[in-house]
Amino acid sequence: MQYPYFPGCTLTNKAKGLNDMAKAGADILGAPLKELENWYCCQANFSSVTDNLMNHLAPVRTLIAAAKEGQKLVVLCSTCYYVLKRVSAIMARDEEKRKVVYEFLEEEYTKPVEVVHFLEYVRDEVGFDKLKENVKMDISVLAIAPYYGCQLLRPSKELAFDDPFEPSIFEEFLGALGCESVDSPFKTECCGSFLTTFSEKGVEDCVDRVLTYAGKNGAEAVTTSCPLCNFNLDWAQKEIKNKNEKFNNMPVFYLTELMALALGIEVPVEVWDEHVVDPRPFLAEKGIVKRTAL
């Protein structure tokens, strides 16, 4: 079964670790991802304001395009997942808004498309068992804390992705890769999100808590499924360290990078170069990547 996938604005140039590694992994798993032909930016955040449908037009266009290619649309980035799923929920429940959008676009949103995150895609279409069978490299030495953030989980009733307080899909995914995950109390808390353009201090506060508690529980690295979470967690560490010597820097991986390592995919240098905290010394120390290969 092949479903179209939605890359969104960031993936192809600033999140290759998410985009390229997902595609390479999906190929190995026999469930290749084919880029949706006619996609538009998801608008980068969901507007909850009730009187302006303009904010929903681009996601609706994408959903209409996806409906032409199948019943499901695979999404990698948490933000895109959140926006597309919330907009599709509004279109499904609000006939009046659906009409207004139709009149504007002159294209009707009729066939609902199920927006699925890559994690759900691997679990439901490939199966974690099959993922496990394809593991080539033992990465069990890595102590990784999954970081869910907000946009996969909340609003929980609408997204229905996982338990909002005790989610487990990330852990199951890492488990299938042969890697035990480290639980941490801030794995479902905010990274600071778009405040990165407004309040460094706010983001640093959030990131400090997420990473410090993950570290306290024994994690040596964290993993995310969102370019913005990934950026905040990675970028803010420098300033946190400047202010607090005791803070331990840790690499921030996309879940797909860990998948690539486990499946024995050669991770290109430009993927590692995207990182702020370079993960290569850590991976070398753990014997996952040979020093000579760096």
């Binding site: 960031t10 980068a44 507007s47 904010n55 778009f194 913005l228 990934n230 950026f231 970028w235």
Partner: peptide, 12 residues
């Protein structure tokens, strides 16, 4: 370094 989505949502 900032991802596009961070910038776009910042503007929004």
């Amino acid at each position: 370094k900032i991802p596009q989505q961070g910038l776009v949502s910042g503007f929004r």
